[in-house]
Structure formats: C-alpha cells, structure tokens
Write a protein that binds this DNA or RNA. Structure first.
Lengths: 290, 290
DNA sequence: CGTCGACTGAAAATTTCTTTTCATGACAGT
DNA sequence: ACTGTCATGAAAAGAAATTTTCAGTCGACG
C-alpha cells in the first residue's frame, strides 16, 4: 500500500470513481477548502459533510489509510508543507555538501532561526526602533558583552557614518558610569545581551533609565533580564548545532536596521558619506607620498 | 476574556513573562514551526515539547482558553486564514511584514547570498581551513578593516577560548609590523577584506608571507587583492538591498569554522572552557563583596 | 412481487484524548 | 534547619473520539 508522495487530494481524486453516494458527498466537503476542512475530529467533518462517522472511516480506509488518525496525519504533513516557507527548501544548494557536513547543519539551523525570528518579530517594533534611531536629536549608545561586543561595534561603526552623536561603550563595565553621566533624556542605549547574561547590564540599564534614556535590547528567545527595562526588545533565535550560540540572525536584524535608518534620512546621510569619502581621500594623500 | 482578533502566537508572546519553566518549554515548542506544531493532540504536543499533558492544559488555560480543544480551535482558524490566503501561502513567514518591508527584502537577499555562497564554496577548502586552525602548533593572527574589524574580533574572541596562541591585530595599520615581527613559519594570518579593499592588507599579507605565515582571506565575490597571496580564500556573497554590504553570510562561515575547529579538538577545548568558567567565577567572587 | 446485495447510520464497544487530583520535589524566606 | 509556596508530572477519572457491529433501507434484477 503506497500513499506516500501523493497528496491526499490526489488520492481522493483518483478514488472518486469507486466512491459511493455518501462518500462522494464527504469527498466534496473535504476538497472544498482543502486541506483545512480535514483538520477537525472525525465527528466534526462528518457533521460538516452531513454523513455519519462510520462513512468517514470507511472512506479513508478505502483510500488506503489505516484509519482516521492515519488519514489526518497525512493531512497535517501537507498543511505543514503548504505553510512552511521557501527558506526551508534549501535542497538545491545542499548538493555540493554531503548531508552531514557542518556547513549544511549550520545552514539548516540558521534558516530555522531566521524564519522563526521573522515570524515572531513585530514589524511595528522594528519600524519604531528604526524611527527612534533615525532621530538625530537623540544620542546613541551601544554596548555589548564579551561575545556580543563585536555586534555592538559593527552596529556602532555603521551608525557613526550615518549620523552624529553615536558612542560605543567600552566592554569594560567599570567605565560605564562615565558614559551614563553624559546621557540625556531621550538618548537611546542599545544593549546586546544574549545568554550567559551579564549582570552588569541590568545595572547599566537601570542607571540609564534614571537619566531618562530609552533602552533597546537585542537578546535571545529567553530574554535578558535587561529586556524588562527596555522600551523595545528584539528576541532573536540563536540556536546552532554548536557549543556556541549563533549571532548570524542578530547581525541580520542589525543590518536591516542600519538600512532602515539610512533610508529614512538618506539626504542627510548622503552628504555625510560624501564628506567621509573626502576625508578618507585626504588621509590616503597624506600617506602616499610617505 | 477576549482572545479574539489576536493570534495565538501573540497571546503566547504576551504571556511569556508569566510562564513557568515547563510552560516556556512548551511555548517554545509550539512557536517553533508555528502553527503546525499545534495541530496534533494534546498528548502529541506534550511529548514533542517534553512536558506532561497537565502542563499543556494549565498553560492554555493561563493563556485564556477554555481548554485544549478551545485552544486548538483557534489554531485551526489561524491555519485556515493562513492557507486560504494565497499571498500568505507563498510566504508564511512574511505574514507579519508587508511584501515590501525591508525585513523581507533583506531576508530574500541573505537567503540568496547564502545559497550562492554555499554553492560556490568547496567543502574541501572549508575542511582544510578548519584543520589548519585546529593545529595548535600554529599561531593565529586575525585582522579586519574598518567594517570587517568586528568580524575579526568575533572570530578572535571565540578562537581565544578554544585554543592558545591567538592574536587580534589592532585595526590601526601602523602597529602591524610589530605583529609580523612575532610571526613564525607556519603561523596563520586570517584577513577580512571586503570591497573598498584596504591597501595596507596587501602589504601586510606580503610581509606575513615572507615570515613563512599561511594566509586565509575572507573576501567578497570580486576578491580582495590580498586573496592572491592567500593559501585559502573564502569568497562570500555580500549583496544586500542597502547602501552597505552584508556581513551576515561571512559571519555564518566564521561560526561554522568555529564549530568545526572546536569539534575537532573537543577534549582539549572542554578543559579550556572549564578552566575559563572557573576564572569567570573567581572574577565574580572578587566583585561581589565590593 | 420477492430476493439479494450493497449502502448507510444508530448505537455499542473500544480506544484515545482531556481534565482533575494528588504526591513529590525544588526553592525562597524565616 | 524548618516551613510554606509553587511547579511539575504520575495516575485516575471523565469526556470524546474512533471503530465495530448490526439492523434498516433502497434499488437492481429475476
């Protein structure tokens, strides 16, 4: 008996000829709004089709399924296939790498993380944060932990080009008070804090709040304790087939934010970038003769 | 009690704070591959999440549903809404974001980059580099440019935990000669250099080669001039719908390498990580009384 | 008109799912 | 160390769902 690889819909169609009146009626009902109509219990779909539950059992067995649960399991798989996204379909580029190669396992995990993060992520939050970061009246402060420090630096480097008043906090927490001292109400503190959350982040966030700063946190799905103090928090999936967590998706969000901010203030940014180009050029000229 | 008009996913998120450990575990399981994961019976999803069925009941009631069947009915409605909408059918994870939202455009681009990079990438190269970096007799030197400095730092931070003899070169090129002075034959210089290639990288690579160092370059598809001097080069796709290039896929390769190296020397690495834990603990103890 | 065979659903039997109850263990505060 | 609170799952109880049994109905055909 082989039901595999054919959709339930196909199977129903190919059996339409041998179905009895009540069974046809049921089949119609199932194909109408397929496959969602088959999601409920046997009782429900029998009622919807106006037939008895034994009819349902008889039909699905006639179709080659072991019983109603078996039938429904197949349907669930199809729903899953329908819903799950293009990201999952990475078969093509996997050709060069044998299935168990670490690159593939990593790619699988990253795709999953990305999909999951995007599903969970509220675009309104994203847009709000982008707007906040675009506001040049607000100073920006970036801080990261031992691992996430590099992400904070990456974000900072770009924002520094795009707009003025951006500061990267040293990863050494003993110098943080001095930064907090300079914060004004409305300034924004962007915190990167993923698991093995750093205790000091909470203190920093608390101090910054007292100065009237807004807080944006990049954390993982479990949530840094600092996220509780944040106006906005990005919960990013960080799981990887590794002893380490993955920062890939976090970097993805950061890059998207960079683009969003840059885009919303393009005219000003363009001027800044031109000026920057000039400065680089000058530096190069200084050096070359030497 | 009003659950209407909010998705089950929303409801779960808004309750994440008040969920207990087992419930969070369950919530994770449900949100993972949402909403398909919630299609089965209470027994099934409890098993998938690794919790007991009473936990499921308690959680859905905490979320405001009358019981599991009520919860599942809502989920079914959402699946129906998702599937019967042809746009959503195409792109489930984009559901939260209108088609032109920057997050989506970015995700598309990144996926393309990743696929293309993996297609081009020779796994033999990857494995060779991983083996090279795993060799503890070789010193490692990391260097990046203005933008890629953060990637170099990220790579360095991890490798520093995994193995000894790792060095991060300052991004200030004037101090590079001192580092080169310390390089021995067989040492490895890992260079990050993507477009707007930095002139000094070639000089650095040349000098390092003279000292007998091997060179590994992370660059873009067009290739840094330093790549010509390299034993191995990773050509990563960096295109993004942005004025900036994307480092996401580069970070992906870096993370995969970290795992590969860690994996090949796990016994030793484990010891190092334990020791490191101890050191962190001590630091914490030093601080606490203060 | 009668008989046969097949279809159908009511109802019983069975299985599975859902909910409740309760004992255990972890943990915070005293 | 003690105590109370809470989270958790094992197990029992209760509720549905699923399957089976079986009798009634209908149409085909002699």
């Amino acid at each position: 008996m082989t039901v595999a690889s054919k959709t339930v819909s196909d199977v129903i169609h190919s059996h339409l000829g041998v179905l009895t009146r009540a069974e046809k009626q049921l089949a119609e009902s199932l194909l109408d709004n397929y496959p969602v109509s088959g999601l409920g219990s046997i009782t429900t779909i029998a009622e919807n089709a106006g037939v008895s539950t034994p009819t349902v059992v008889r039909m699905v067995q006639k179709l080659g399924f072991k019983g109603y649960p078996d039938f429904q399991a197949h349907l669930h798989l199809e729903v899953e296939a329908t819903i799950s996204n293009p990201i999952a379909k990475h078969d093509r580029w996997a050709q060069n790498a044998p299935g168990t190669h670490i690159l593939n396992r990593f790619a699988d995990a990253i795709m999953g993380n990305l999909r999951q993060t995007l599903t969970d992520l509220d675009t309104a939050t994203f847009d709000s944060v982008a707007a906040l970061l675009s506001d040049r009246k607000r100073g920006l402060y970036f801080v990261g932990g031992r691992i996430t420090g590099a992400l904070a630096e990456y974000f900072f480097t770009h924002m520094q080009v795009i707009r003025p008043a951006t500061t990267l906090l040293s990863s050494n927490s003993s110098s943080w008070p001095q930064y907090v001292l300079n914060m004004n109400a409305g300034d924004i503190l962007i915190i990167f804090d993923i698991r093995r959350y750093e205790q000091e982040m909470v203190s920093l966030a608390t101090a910054a709040r007292k100065r009237g700063a807004e807080i944006v946190v990049f954390t993982d799905q479990w949530g840094s304790p600092a996220a509780k103090l944040a106006r906005y928090a990005f919960r990013v999936r960080i799981e990887a087939p590794s002893a380490w967590d993955s920062s890939v998706v976090t970097l993805f969000i950061v890059e998207a934010l960079i683009e969003a901010v840059q885009n919303s203030t393009w005219d000003e940014t363009k001027e800044r970038m031109k000026t920057l180009e000039g400065l680089f050029e000058q530096t190069r000229l200084f050096r070359k003769p030497g």
